[in-house]
């Protein structure tokens, strides 16, 4: 029924030009072979893996996850029974990182603190991302006056200094993982919503969305098939940074005394308590905890950075 695009025009083999005037002398399709770069996700994973720091970061995170959640199964340190007689002991065989002023094993404390850091980090970010994405997507899709009002509301909330309002709200709620996550999440969704809205707005005018409309696609279908998958990459990158930020803010709360209540503890809480003992030279109360905190946040930031570069490459490859 149709002529094969790659065939030569045999009727003109008599002309001086091999392959004829109009056809392609090559085997294979006229459009040329497709250079295999690699499929989308594989490309992103390869870019990510090339960034060695990011791989290290990922390894570090996995290590800490295992350390904090599985560690207590292995290392049975006392983090729950006050044992004042054994307070402030330097590191030894019995207590690998010494004890704090209430006699708790410092290493065990770090594990418990790490658990709260990851839990709150993930939970708060989850709340922020879900709320922020939905809000931003709706604003971007509906547009017009509603979008304006929605974004003004975000502007107003963003004007309130984040740490201040979180601290004030923390005074009312006892410090549990859930309550702190919710308080953090309640104010962390603002920036993701702006990002998602921006992304949706720019996507709406792209040619492939217009093409879908020309084909007769309903708006809902465009949202699910085109807008959300493309906006996802923005959110994925955002999640890692959100987790990093949440852990940092949690440490601020803890340091200032508004963190988690006993028996839970957070690294910030530990540092807050340890400050008083620095002049005594009880270094084990300060530096191991601080180091863990910095390393975990750093790992999240590295991974987030690499994710952003990797996902960018996918779109930019021409």
């Amino acid at each position: 029924m149709t002529e094969n695009a790659g065939s030569t025009s045999t009727a003109h083999a008599s002309t001086a030009l091999p392959g004829g005037l109009y056809g392609s002398p090559l085997d294979g399709p006229e459009g040329g072979e497709v250079q295999v770069i690699s499929s989308g996700w594989r490309l992103a994973v390869r870019e990510f893996a090339d960034n060695r720091l990011a791989v290290v970061g990922l390894a570090v995170l996995l290590f800490f996850l295992a350390f904090c959640f599985l560690g207590p199964l292995v290392y049975h340190g006392n983090a729950t029974n006050a044992d004042v007689l054994n307070a402030n002991l330097p590191p030894s065989g019995a207590h690998l990182l010494g004890t704090d002023e209430q006699g708790f094993d410092e290493l065990a404390n770090i594990m418990v603190g790490g658990q709260s850091a990851f839990e709150i980090g993930f939970f708060a970010s989850a709340v922020a991302i879900v709320v922020g994405t939905l809000y931003g997507a709706v604003a971007g899709l509906v547009g017009g006056f509603v979008d304006g009002v929605m974004m003004r509301f975000v502007d107003v909330l963003l004007a309130i200094p984040f740490l201040f309002i979180v601290l004030v709200l923390s005074t009312k709620y006892t410090g549990t993982v859930v309550s702190i996550s919710l308080v953090l999440g309640c104010f962390s969704w603002l920036i993701p919503s702006r990002l998602v809205r921006g992304e949706v707005l720019s996507l709406r005018t792209r040619d492939f969305v217009l093409a879908a409309r020309v084909m007769g696609s309903s708006r809902t279908r465009i949202v699910y098939r085109h807008l959300i998958p493309n906006a996802l990459s923005v959110t994925i990158v955002n999640v890692t940074f959100l987790i990093a930020d949440s852990i940092l803010v949690l440490s601020y709360l803890g340091f200032l005394g508004f963190g988690l209540q006993f028996p839970a503890t957070s690294w910030g809480d530990m540092l807050g308590g340890a400050q008083a003992y620095m002049s005594n030279g009880y270094w084990w109360l300060v530096y191991p905890v601080g180091a863990c905190l910095v390393v975990v946040v750093l790992a999240f930031n590295l991974v987030g950075d690499a994710l952003r570069d990797a996902l960018d490459v996918r779109l930019r490859r021409r």
Partner: peptide
């Protein structure tokens, strides 16, 4: 910069104090 960026400000302060 990455390290500083990932560090809570008070921790840096504690180190400097130390």
């Amino acid at each position: 910069n990455f390290a500083l960026y990932s560090m809570p400000s008070f921790f840096l302060g504690l180190i400097l104090i130390q």
